[in-house]
């Protein structure tokens, strides 16, 4: 057997490599954030929030219609997906705790959670865009909702399972019907966790591009019609970035900075909420 000193050396070397891996991982995050700030901030003017996307070759312009479209579609996607997710999560954690259906649904949900988002785009294209004969903001919202549901189901179930059973028993002993017990007691006890789940879902879909590429397309102009293609930040970035037009490229970087800032802020807020819940 190797001497103790040799074993220690080996251990120190491997642990040094682990430290190095961590440093590289963290540095990588800052590299990405740095290049976003470096390229995005010069274009961050007031006009970005007040003007429409410019036609190619023209100077100026902003991202107002894209920002508006992204907000609308994220809001609608979460508005459709989150209630369904919370209800399904409630079934898994409350009503179906001993049902044979529950493990099956949980398993399928976990797979949908990691399913490639472009597949969801294809699904919505086939299920919504083709029958409606038009790319539309509604189709994009449905695609986002399909991504939201598994995220919310998962967090809802996890959070409800953390609620102590004694609370449920106390509520039932007072004669509260089961649905009231769930809504007035279990939901309230798990509120921070449920909000965390929804926020994480918003963060997840806020930057999604692949499922929007062929469900809403994009739109050069202002459009509030939900049944027509609508401008949105991710697809606008995707269309602008590969263009030689310097103005477009600048707008794409600024849009990327906005999306990343929003998504990371949501992520941190959600984690902060979740953590303060753990501390109680």
């Amino acid at each position: 057997m190797a001497s103790y000193a040799a074993r220690q050396r080996k251990s120190t070397t491997v642990m040094g490599l682990c430290l190095l891996a961590t440093v590289i991982g963290v540095v990588w995050l800052f590299l990405i954030l740095f290049s976003l700030l470096w390229n995005g901030i010069p274009g961050l003017t007031f006009a970005v929030f007040t003007e429409m996307t410019p036609p190619p070759g023209e100077k100026g312009g902003g991202l107002l219609n894209a920002i508006y479209g992204s907000l609308i579609m994220t809001f609608m996607g979460v508005g459709i997906g989150a209630p369904i997710g919370i209800l399904a999560g409630t079934y898994l954690a409350e009503y179906g705790r001993h049902s044979k259906l529950t493990p099956v649904i949980r398993f399928i949900n976990d797979i949908l959670l990691s399913a490639p988002s472009i597949i969801i785009g294809l699904f919505v294209y086939g299920a919504v865009v083709v029958p409606m004969r038009s790319f539309s903001a509604v189709a994009g919202s449905i695609a986002l909702a399909v991504i939201v549901v598994p995220v919310v189901v998962r967090t809802t179930e996890d959070m409800l399972l953390l609620v102590p059973n004694t609370l449920r028993e106390a509520a039932s002993a007072l004669g509260l019907p089961r649905s009231h017990m769930i809504r007035k007691v279990a939901y309230r006890a798990a509120r921070a966790g449920l909000i965390t789940g929804v926020l994480l879902a918003v963060a997840r879909v806020g930057g999604e591009t692949a499922p929007l590429l062929f469900t809403v397309l994009s739109n050069q102009f202002w459009s509030a019609d939900l049944l027509r293609p609508m401008a949105n930040l991710p697809v606008t970035i995707n269309n602008f970035i590969n263009n030689p037009d310097a103005n477009w490229k600048q707008l794409a970087w600024t849009g990327a900075l906005l999306i990343t800032a929003a998504v990371l802020t949501l992520n941190i807020t959600a984690r902060f909420l979740g953590a303060s819940k753990d501390g109680q």
């Binding site: 990405i32 930057g207 591009t209 995707n238 990343t260 998504v263």
Partner: peptide, 9 residues
Amino acid sequence: LLAGIPSII
């Protein structure tokens, strides 16, 4: 947070 950055970025 690396996981939170959108893939288009």
